[in-house]
Design a protein around this nucleic acid. Structure first.
Lengths: 202, 202
DNA sequence: CGCGACGTTGATTTGCCTCAACGATTGTGG
DNA sequence: CCACAATCGTTGAGGCAAATCAACGTCGCG
């Protein structure tokens, strides 16, 4: 493993590159930005966000893989809202934006390195580096569009179509996560997904 | 009917009240705001947004009812993304935010009075009245949360549950729109919805 | 090694769709 | 204002995709 300072440098480097893809930011501005982001490490199978309390942070994935899901203890089932791999963001955004206690959880599916930022700190950061407000706004717009597309896909596509959408939307992710987790993202059972995969081998 | 100036005054009054519910705005600021919003009238069954060109406006519903839907000419079917009644906003937000030509359409289901605003004008407006940027951001966050809840509802709830969600989400709207439009919002056929309604009468 | 978690396969059930027919309602032109 | 057509909602019969239930093989890990 890299020494602490080394992986931190890599983490912030990843974030800088990511932000720069959307809105150019100066070295000085990024130095300010860095102060508000904390590096967090999570083991595989650990919980990043637990249901029950209000979520005040969002997370940027430097390395690893997260899954946001709604547990349904009664039916002994889970519903996956989204996955997040390198350069994606995750949180329980329902709790984060509406300020209600989280019903969803975020779990780390692998050893993960994250950068977390407090919602309250973002407000301050926006005042110091206004481009970042545009950046996060753009990010929200994109996420909104993605969700609307997913709703449309649920309305019009078959399970097989949606599985192919999933493969396109998350390249190679099918090799990193469990089948039953993909099934719970698609809204079908693991058995059905297994049959769809079999079907597709021809 | 009211004279033109009268309905315009009512329209802007509605918008002012609506904005004030989220972020307080002074009389002077609202005067600036008004300049960018245009009153538009639509007849029942007319199209507010047609598929094919990039959508640059979003619409506030002063009076009436809109529906955003994706037409599928092949299957001779439609998929409803959302309804918008008084004090709601509508557009094809996929086109509006991503700048791609619209695939969805927005139709007026009743005689409607709308206030439209250009995306480009909002940028200018934000510079003059910064509270409005927060207002629109809040609106986007709420819409994002609503969509995420709908995705979860699609994953976990039965058609009947989703119908009840619809009734709660859009109070009394079932008396204003066609059954097959509600069905296309729920992702079921009009026949299935009819059977669900029958079921619920006990 | 042995246990538990996971993926697959088969048999059966079920919720919703499709297709078709029929009233009710709406809207329109004579 | 009525007559007629079109649209819409309902109901029934039959079919299909996916769920459920159950069994079994495999893999990973304590």
């Amino acid at each position: 493993m890299f020494p602490e300072t080394m992986t931190n440098a890599l983490a912030y480097g990843s974030l800088l590159q990511h932000i720069n893809r959307y809105s150019k930011i100066s070295y000085e501005d990024f130095e300010v930005c860095k102060q508000y982001f904390n590096v967090e490490h999570y083991k595989s199978h650990s919980l990043v966000v637990k249901a029950g309390s209000v979520v005040t942070k969002q997370y940027y994935v430097v390395q690893g893989c997260l899954r946001t899901f709604l547990p349904d203890d009664e039916k002994d089932r889970e519903y996956t809202v989204q996955f997040a791999v390198e350069e994606w963001w995750a949180s329980d955004f329902i709790s984060y934006y509406s300020g209600v206690p989280a019903v969803c959880q975020v779990e780390s599916l692998e050893e993960s390195i994250l950068l977390s930022v407090q919602k309250a700190d973002l407000v301050r950061l926006y005042q110091q580096v206004p481009q970042l407000e545009s950046f996060f706004l753009r990010k929200l717009e994109n996420a909104f569009v993605a969700f609307q597309k997913r709703i449309l896909s649920n309305l019009k596509d078959t399970a097989e179509d949606r599985y192919e959408d999933f493969l396109r939307h998350y390249p190679n992710l099918d090799q990193r996560v469990k089948n039953y987790q993909i099934a719970s993202y698609l809204g079908i059972t693991p058995e059905s997904l297994s049959r769809i995969r079999k079907q597709k081998m021809k």
